[in-house]
Amino acid sequence: MTGKKEKFGILVVDDHPVMRDGLRAVIEQEPDMEVAGEAADGREAIEQFQRLLPDIMLIDLQMPDVDGLQAITTIRSEFPDATIIVLTTYPGDARVVRAFTLGATSYLLKTARRDEIIKAVRGALSGRHTVAPEVAQEIASHTGQEGLTEREVGVLKLVAKGRSNRDIADRLCVSEDTVKARMKSIMGKLGAEDRTHAVMIAIRRGFMESQA
């Protein structure tokens, strides 16, 4: 007869040691949970997941080298049943949708209370999804709106670097008129007033990362 599992192992992934320490303190107050391991970036997260096979992974998205979305993609391709909770600062709707599409189970913000994190972990272990209220509101506010295409994001990334339409056209091997058409489409979809505003909106919503 197989006994009930004593503790669920959780892999904590964040590039800030203080955040990892805080999550460890929260998790280890629970009698049926323990921190199975820690990782400071996406590459280490993949290695640790493969080695430890934790019951659940708590992961940030924006990290150096390999980011959280890349790590989720790799882990889920190898372990389709992996249970992954995103715990991040960024509520942008495009980023959230991508995280769930790639296989995240839940999406929380770092402002979440201790009890909210534990409740989400227990829910994920039972197959339930949790979405932070602020995140759900962000998604709802853009429901029905058309997202940016990969080519449009490519143009906007070059705009964010201060490139002119002519320079962007040369780099992407397209005509300047094509770049202008894509910028018109981007600004229409985002409701942007100008190029700088479009970049700011795209970063906030998670279509692209800050260039800082």
Rank of each mutant, 00 (worst) to 15 (best):
Q145V: 14
V135H: 02
T143Y: 13
D67I: 09
L109H: 02
E146I: 15
G147C: 10
R113W: 11
T89Y: 08
Y90Q: 10
L156T: 10
L156P: 06
T83I: 14
R128C: 11
E134P: 04
T74K: 07
E116I: 06
A99R: 00
T88R: 00
I139Q: 05
T111R: 12
V159P: 03
L148V: 06
A112G: 05
A132V: 04
A112I: 12
Y107I: 05
A104R: 03
T149R: 05
Q137E: 15
T105M: 07
S77I: 06
V135M: 03
R122F: 04
F79T: 13
R98I: 06
A99L: 03
G68F: 00
T105C: 11
D93Q: 08
G147T: 09
D115M: 08
A112P: 03
L125D: 02
D67T: 09
V153N: 05
V159K: 03
E150F: 13
G147H: 09
Q137T: 14
R113F: 07
G144I: 14
G103P: 03
D81H: 14
T105K: 05
G92C: 12
L125I: 11
A160G: 13
P91C: 10
E78R: 13
A120G: 08
I85Y: 06
Q145Y: 12
A160H: 02
A132K: 03
I84T: 07
T88W: 00
Y107R: 04
G144L: 12
T111D: 13
E78K: 14
L156E: 05
H129R: 15
L69K: 04
A82W: 01
K119S: 14
A120Q: 01
A136H: 06
T74P: 02
A94F: 00
E116G: 04
G127A: 13
T83G: 05
A94P: 10
P80Q: 10
A132Y: 04
K119A: 14
H129T: 15
D81R: 13
Q70F: 00
I118N: 01
A112S: 15
L87Q: 02
P91A: 12
R113L: 15
E138G: 03
E78Q: 14
E152Y: 04
I85V: 13
T105H: 08
I75N: 00
S126W: 09
E152I: 12
L87P: 02
G127L: 15
A120V: 13
V121C: 03
V131D: 04
H142A: 13
A104Y: 07
H129Q: 14
E78C: 09
E138Q: 09
A94N: 07
R151N: 08
L69P: 03
R151T: 14
D67C: 07
L69Q: 03
A99I: 01
I72L: 13
R95L: 10
E138L: 04
E78F: 10
G68C: 05
V155Q: 03
G103A: 07
D93K: 05
R95M: 10
L125T: 11
A104G: 06
V121M: 15
F79D: 06
V86H: 01
H129S: 15
R113I: 06
T83H: 04
T111P: 06
G162Q: 08
G68D: 01
D93C: 02
E146S: 14
